[in-house]
Amino acid sequence: MNINKNIAVSDSGFVFNPTTGESYTVNPIGVEIIEMLKQEKSINEINQVLIGRYNADIVTIDKDVSDFINLLKLYSLIENQNAA
């Protein structure tokens, strides 16, 4: 799971990809996930961090995180799809 390292993420949740010139908005939990992806955490690790911090069950988190990561792929923010 290689997130494009050039991507700038601001506290306000603004994501700018200087390679493509596209920009995005992300909610706070999304920012956390992107930061963890940058630290090369695996999906499993990310899920564990989130379950410790948020009031939700693992099924919901697992489903939502993989949906989010799929969107990052759709937007080409994740460069290749080597499983973590």
Binding site: S10, S12, G13, F14, F16, S23, T25
Partner: peptide, 11 residues
């Protein structure tokens, strides 16, 4: 600057 665009877009 993109920061200005960021500010109006997010806030």
């Amino acid at each position: 600057d993109i920061e200005e665009f960021e500010k109006i877009s997010t806030t």
